[in-house]
Nucleic acid binder design. Structure first.
Lengths: 222, 222
DNA sequence: GAAATGTTTTAAGCATATCTTAAGAGTCAG
DNA sequence: CTGACTCTTAAGATATGCTTAAAACATTTC
């Protein structure tokens, strides 16, 4: 994992470099905004630690320009300030998190890990009528009663909910849930839709998962 | 909150004691390295303030020996020096932070609070049905009968309990308990789950640790 | 430094849950 | 009414997890 630190105080810079390298991150550093920006644009980093006040170009400006270049690398602000206004500026500029000096190294590590976690910004919970799907913990509830689903059942339900309100064609379902990318005529989907409706307790009146004849299925509120 | 100050200059020592006691910390003091080390090993403090230069045993040595004894209490160095080299020594010795003399009392308070933050909220005891896990003393009980677990068994149980009620995916388990961060197909987890269930005396009816086929495991009340 | 003890990991056979197929029953649209 | 599409069911194929034993590795003891 590669980390870029943009920070002008040598003490803090070295403290961070040392600590992060011991955690086996690969660390690059810059001591002013211009150099930092250049490096962020040139190389692919996994996280950028960005000081708020920098000589040359302020942290906010650097952040904004990194985002303007279309780079989505997580940026964590290191800031001595603490007013609501400042953090708002930082987050508007496209930062993902900020940490107030002085901070403990453990705390910084925690925040870096949070940013590195895959899908950190991704939606995790979906709802459909009385049904709640938590993709993180892989659990499904109906009226806060857990319903056990198998892998494929869960995958199919998740796909339908990620496309809630849109018709899902059979070919798209087979592609996404079964990972089959060629013409394939099969009845598996029907079997699983059937199983889902049963387990979720859906009836004729409560048809949250509807059949679109000749096309596919749709999950929607009724 | 208990603070140990190891500092040989009486002026600074009294200044600190006075101020910290007013903030309602409970303060113990030592005026040389040997005494300080002894106290740090004998009593449970929440923070140690450690002067860099001490008669008897230097601050770095004291710090190193505290860590060697397995004590994780946050240590803040009080130092007149400021070279990169010195702070590096200090942090390598296991310190959590350092503060340069002369410092404002406010600043010191801030840093103490930072060090207390991550530990203060941490949960130490977990329960699961008749099972109690104490992460501090590294002990596990079932109906107040101690159960001896190995390192890995304990680590796995602790991870499951820290995520009690949530499904733990195999990849997360391997990452957190085994510290393996790449794709790794193995049966170790199964073996350890098996061992845990045996030692904890879990049965079909008492399945506090359930397997979620194709995903992982979940610890939850039944 | 070797033996003894304890822990962690690997691997293989077995049991069982899950997935897929296929076939008959049911449903809808023209 | 008829043909195309979908639903339902059950049985065979596959994948996953459980259990065990032994190998690899670590730690303690003499």
């Amino acid at each position: 994992m590669r980390i870029l630190i943009i920070e002008d105080e040598p003490g803090i810079l070295n403290f961070l470099r040392q600590g992060l390298e011991e955690e086996s991150y690969s660390v690059d550093t810059a001591t002013n905004g211009l150099d930092g920006l250049e490096m962020a644009l040139a190389e692919a980093y996994d996280v950028v630690l960005l000081d708020w006040m920098l000589p040359g170009k302020s942290g906010v400006e650097v952040c904004r320009e990194i985002r303007r270049a279309g780079i989505k690398t997580p940026i964590i602000f290191l800031t001595a300030r603490d007013t609501v206004q400042d953090t708002v500026f930082g987050l508007q500029a496209g930062a993902n998190d900020y940490i107030k000096k002085p901070f403990s190294f453990e705390e910084l590590l925690e925040r870096i890990k949070v940013q590195l976690r895959p899908h950190s910004g991704e939606q995790v919970e979906f709802r459909l009528g009385p049904i709640v799907v938590d993709t993180q913990s892989h659990q499904v509830f109906r009226d806060s009663q857990e319903i056990k689903l198998t892998q494929k059942e869960f995958g199919l339900l998740e796909f339908l909910l990620r496309n809630k309100g849109k018709v899902c064609r059979r070919t798209r379902i087979i592609e996404s849930v079964w990972d089959i990318h060629f013409e394939y005529n099969t009845g598996v989907i029907d079997v699983y839709i059937n199983s889902l409706r049963k387990k979720l307790g859906l009836t004729k009146e409560e048809d949250y998962i509807q059949t679109i004849r000749g096309v596919g299925y749709i999950a929607k509120e009724i």
